[in-house]
Amino acid sequence: MATERNSVDLVDGDVVRQFARAAMLAALIGASVFVTIPNPFSPAPITLQVLFVFLAGLVLGPVWGPISLLLYLTAGAVGIPVFSGFEAGIGPLFGATGGYLWSYPIAAAVIGLVVHRGTDLRDPAAVALPIVVGALVAGTIIIYGMGTAYAAWLLELAAWEAIAGFALPFIPGEILKMVAAIVIVRSGRIEPVQS
């Protein structure tokens, strides 16, 4: 058996704390799958996953937010049931909703960059409200843009067909999640890790 005989290379304290939070947030996104709200406009229910994608960008920032989402995607790909409907495997990453999954890390990165203006984390409760709202809207546009574009390409749909099937039914739920994300960061009960 191959054993490393080099001296131990410890991970820095800041990195450990941020990494633990990123992993827990990824697990929380997976755990939130069972909380569903019936959607009158689509057979697919509303889940809280996107709310935690928003929070990953807002609280973990532009570096650890996307890492958290990449961990989530990897965990799902290797068979942990974290995708909506308790699905798992590489299949969902290429499936009809695969575009949404791939967009999550990008959306978290953009939200983090807009809100924190760089890699040093600021308290999101102290950031001006229009900036937070703008960041969340940009994140939502990225998620739905990539999600519907991929579905349209994959399933050979026209643009309006993809938008009608994969975006419009979820807009009311999205607005709800944006407001919930703002309420959560404004509560001041969640502080980012200061490095």
Binding site: A27, L55, V59, I184, R189, I190
Partner: peptide, 12 residues
């Protein structure tokens, strides 16, 4: 949704 999100996140 916001209560569940906030409490879930603080616990996590």
């Amino acid at each position: 949704a916001s209560t569940l999100g906030l409490l879930g996140l603080t616990r996590a």
